[in-house]
Structure formats: C-alpha cells, structure tokens
Nucleic acid binder design. Structure first.
Lengths: 203, 203, 203, 203
DNA sequence: TATGAATGAGTGTTCATTCAT
DNA sequence: AATGAATGAACACTCATTCAT
C-alpha cells in the first residue's frame, strides 16, 4: 500500500496545521512559540520542521488550508443557485457562518493573519485573490443578468461587499462575539443592494 | 517659565512619536527595534523610556497622536457643512486624502497598527470609537433629516462605510499605491448611498 | 557461506567510510550531517548506526581506513629498498603523491581530521603512531648504517621530517593546490639531510 | 577625558578576548558556548555581541590579539641581534617559550585554531602570513650574509622551520606537556641548520 | 534630563540518534 | 538488515529595558 505513507504524511500535516490555527489564535502569532504549536499538535518540536519550512511557512500554510476548505464549501453551496442575488446572499451567509461556527478559526483569519510582514502578505495574497474572484464572478453574473448595476466597477463592489462583511466580523470578534453573527447577513445585503439613501430623497 | 519645560517635553514627545510612525511603517512594528526608533528620532535609546512606558506604549501613543490630528481635521472640515450627505462625502474624501498624502502614515495605520495583540487592540479601541462616533453622528443626522433610511441600524451603516473605505485603502496600499486614491470617493459614496442593485430590478 | 555475509558487511562498511571521507572533506566535519554522509553512501540515515557508533566513530574509522591504505602502500614500496636514504626519499614521495592523487582525501587528512576534540585526537593517535614508527624505523636504520647522525634523537628527526612535509602539504592545500606537489620532495629531503647552513660557514 | 571611553572599550574587549582564549582552549571551540565565554569574562551573554559580531569573530579576533602580542615580542627581541643565525635561534626559542609559558594559549593556538572552516582559515591567514614574513626575512638576511644556503627557496626553508617547531609543540601538548619545551630549541636548530646526514656520508 | 553600555530572558531551528516497521 | 520518521536537547543571537554616570 504505497498510498498509506502519503496518507499518513497528509494526515500528520493536517494535524499540525489545525494545531497551528488553534495555537496562533489563542496566543497570537508573534507570541506563540513553535514549541507551543508542537505541543498542541502532540508532536516534538523538530517534527514541525519535517513538514514545514519554519514558523512563517506554518502560518501561511495554515491560511491556505483553511481558505481551501472555505472556498470549497462556497463552491459547493453556490453551484446549485441560479439567481446571482441569491448567490450573493448565500456567500455572505457562509462567510458569517464559518466565522460563527469556529471562533478560533475566526480569530485566526481575522486577527492573526493580518500580519504586516511583507513576505506573509505576499504569500497570503493568492488565496485571498481566489476568494475575490469568487465574489466578482457572482457580481459579473448579476451584471450580465441585469440585476446588478453596470455603472460601478466590479472591483469597487467587491471591495465594498468584502470590506463590509470583514468589518462586521471584526467588530463582532472584538466585542467578544455578542450573540449570533449570521442574522447580520440580511441587513448587510439590504444595504449593499439598495444603499442607505432614503427612497425618494434627492441624489 | 513653567510652560517652557512642558512645551519642551511635548515637543520631544511629538518628535519621538513621529519618528515611531516612520520607523514602524518602514520596518514593521515587530521587526522594528526601539533603538531604530531612537535613532530615527535623534535621541538615545534610554530617552524613549523617559516619555513612554515601552515599545507597545509607543505604538499606541503614536496611533492616538495620529488619530487626534485626523479627527481634528475632520471636525474642522465637516462643521461648516449643512447637508449630511455632503458631510458623508467629505468624510470619506478626507479619509482617502490623509492616506494618499502621507504614505508612511497610511502604512502605519493600515498595516502596522493591525496588531493582533489583545493589549494593543484594547488600547487602540478608544480612538477608533471616536472615529466611529463621528461617522454615526453624521448618519443619525441624515436619518433625522430624512435623507438616510431609518430601517437599517446606524451601526450597520457605519460598518459598511468604514469597512468599504478601509478595504479600498488596503487594496491600494498592497498594490503599491497605483494612482490617486481620492477619486475613489465618488463610486464608494454612490454605492453606499444607492446600492448595487439595478434600478427597476425586483427586490 | 558464512564468508559472504561478513564480506557484504565489510563492503558496506567501506562504502560508508569512503562516502564519509568525501562528505567530510567537502562540507567540513562539523558542518556535515550524518544524513549527508548517508545520502553520499546511498544508504538510509539509520543504516550508518548499524556499522558505526556515531558520527565521531565515523570520522575516526574513516581515518583508520585511510591510514591503513597509506601505510600498506608505504610498506610495500619501502620493503625492496636497501638504502635508508632512499627509503626516506620514497617515504616523503609517497606522502606527497597520496595527497596529490586524491584531493578529497588530502583535505580530509589535512584539514577535517585536525579536530581539537580530545576524544577524536586520542582515537587518532594510534594510526598516527604507526606512521611515526615507520619513519623512526627508517631513521634508526640509517643511524645503524652510519648514514644518519646519531647525536640527534630520532624523535626530533621524525618530528622535523613529518612537520616539514605536513606543513608543505598544508600550504599547498590552502593555496588551492598550485601545481604538482611531488617535486617538492627533492628540496625537502635536501634540507632535512643537509641543513640550511651554507657549507664552510662557521658553526 | 574623551580617552576614557575608548580605553574602557579596549579594556573590555581585551577582557573578553582573553576569556575566550581560556574558554575555547578548555572546552574546544565547537563545544564551548558563547554563554561560557561570557561567564568566563564576567559579562552577560549579550555583551559579547556589543564587541564582536559573533562566535566566529570572537575566535578570529582572539587569534589576532594573541598573535599580535607574540609578534611584538619577537620584533622587540630580535631587533638588537645582528647575526641571522642568532635571530633564528631566538625566534624558535620565543615560539617555544610562549607556548610553555601559557598552556591555555598553547592549546588555543595549536588545537582550537586549526578549524577547517573556510571562513575561519581565511581570517586567520593574515596574521599567520605576518609570522611567515618574519621568519623569511631572517632567512633572507642569512642568505645575504652568506651564512644560509642560497640554493633552497626561502619558502621551503620557512616551511621546514615552522613545520618542525609546530610539530614539536603539538607532540608536547598531546603528551600533556612532559617537561620543559624550550630546551628543544637547540636540537631543532642543529637539525635545521646542519641536517640529519652524518658528516662524511655520501650524497 | 539625557545617555548608551550592559543586561539576560527568550526562541527558532538544527541534527545526532533511536526505534517501530 | 535496512529504513526514515520522529525525537528533543542544545545554542547562537536579539532586543526591550534598566541604571550608573
């Protein structure tokens, strides 16, 4: 069974990555030692280095691992939906659900990952772009269908949508998760779709 | 001349804080040593500790200093405006202008300040709240005047506005400041005010 | 076939030892990992420990292996010679030839082996003594024959001869092997035999 | 007193260098930790790095420091001597005296310094060259005066002289310093000057 | 006030060695 | 016999902070 060795390796890798997410979100990336991640994963310090190049690679890999899961879930959930507006709504809901479901993952994505180190930001860019592309695809679909305005660049819309959701999650986290997060999807969508201007008010 | 001594102290403090903003934004908070801030400020390492409790206090104080200036500018600029919509527009414009005007300050506020350390986040909360209050005050004014919808909580609107602007600045910074930033105020306002839904499309 | 197993073991051992000489001379003993020796030998890391007690034993065994070969060659070459002076000359020539012939072996013997660790020096002593005895035997033979002075202790002579050759090889190696080494045997012998004092000069 | 600060720095540097010589010669360079050098010097670990770039720089600097002292002593002692042969004798005597006088320094120079690391060897080259130049100057003087043979290259002579003395000291050290070292100067000089060939023996 | 030399706790990473398979 | 994944002790170096001057 040649597969067995590969499987064991992948399993071990996952085990370490998930320990890293937990440890980083609890201690904070910079204040978390590699030894703490190892302990959390139940392996020796040196073992980490058999799977990852170093602490930074651990952070970046953990991000990719987590984002991979989220994007997969999104693709699976959005595929059956026809209406771009529905897709948009579901996308926001999933984003909020994921964060609400796993607070440590939320803290990891929302706080620990915002490292100003250039190399980290660079490494993180790609999976973030993948998420951005998902959002923009839905928006473009909406433009094509005629349900979304065509006179605002898609990128601007995407930034507004993502920025709004992101800020919402941040606030929720910093207030120590007061109540459920998912219900906020409704108002957010309403706002993004219809704007904040009162109907009948002047331009 | 009791004032003179106080003035000298305040002056020294400002000198160090502004050196800190430059040094932190260049090197990154965690990779920047206190010695580097001292050198940038033209003082000895030990002198820093006559004005600040430590490195973290330096970061937090620098933020307060910078935010103080920005809020002051906003208050001064918004005061003469009557229309809440105009105020909103000017607020976004000032936010973008400040970032565009001083790239080091932008990097500081946008990247270096996003430290996941709990104590830092806590210390930073207050000035951020002050900014949030400014935004919400304008929104509430608009609700009162009838130009802003009343059926969406003000906090939700504030998060959308701030999140959108914040995400816009982040993207701009990470793309190494491609072109001017201020013109993005128009589309952002349009979007936030009117939403992305095509007119005449179903709810 | 009991021999076959023993032979295979000896063969494996030799294979590892020669890989060790190459790896150590290239990377330097301290900077060379056991894993690198294993890779060079084409065996797994753990296999090394089936043949040697550890890294240090590997170094010492490699030295013994190499010195064994050299001493064997010397014995074979010197045996047929009658004149002690001729033997001395051949001995120096062989020393220089061996170094010239195999640069990796030279680097190993001349540089990597000079480890200051007490245990290594102790372990290395014995084969070095064997070499010293070869030299002293020839010198004593010369004294007996009357071609070598008897008023200088043999040990002193041996140290002068070995020290001179050793220093010559060291210089040559550190200058990255500029030209052939063997021709230096002539002047060395001349000097050791006749001294540097000008003939007819006062004592 | 502006000198005072510089003096204190030089003093501190010397204090650390001499601690390094002691610690390295006792533990062996690779088995000696920077912390041990610091303790030996009576300073904190970090202090070492205010004076030296790192452990390797410490080794190299210690060598330069020690060699500087020895060369100074040699120059002072050889200057008044007129006869090149006397100079040669004195040179060998000083070499042996220095080693005998300070066994830790001897172990340092003779064992610890023979590190195969390329960067160390390179850094050590220069002071060694200075010593070589001293020896060759005396030999050339002897050639000019006519007391030293002219038909053997000076470099060959220098290598023989240095190699012989070096090997003598090494043997003495490895035998744990059996008796005085300086008396060995006589036989060594005799051998180098007059050779080992019995008078009247055929070429 | 200001200095900057000195401190020493803290940590990412390596690698010789072991042992279950 | 052979493997190579796992171990964990060991260590050079950094840097926030202090304090004698």
């Amino acid at each position: 069974m040649g597969r067995s060795a590969e499987d064991r390796r992948a399993e071990r890798e996952r085990q370490i990555l998930e320990a890293a997410v937990r440890a980083f979100s609890r201690q904070g990336y910079h204040h978390c030692t590699v030894a703490q991640v190892a302990r959390e994963a139940g392996v020796a310090d040196g073992t980490i280095y058999l799977y990852f190049r170093g602490k930074e690679d651990l952070l970046v890999s953990a991000f990719r691992h987590v984002m991979g899961g989220i994007l997969e879930e999104m693709d699976r959930e959005l595929a059956p939906l026809a209406d771009p507006i529905h897709k948009l709504r579901r996308l926001v809901e999933i984003h909020l659900e994921v964060m609400e479901r796993d607070p440590e993952l939320a803290a990891f994505l929302q706080l620990q990952l915002r490292q100003p180190d250039a190399s980290i930001r660079t490494a993180i860019t790609e999976p973030l772009r993948a998420y951005a592309r998902r959002i923009e695809a839905v928006l473009d679909e909406g433009k094509a269908t005629g349900v979304i305005r065509s006179d605002i660049p898609t990128r601007v819309m995407r930034r507004a949508l993502f920025g709004t959701v992101d800020e919402t999650v941040s606030s929720w986290l910093l207030k120590d998760r007061p109540g459920p997060l998912r219900p906020k999807a409704g108002p957010i969508l309403d706002l993004i779709l219809n704007g904040i201007r009162a109907r009948g008010a002047p331009g």
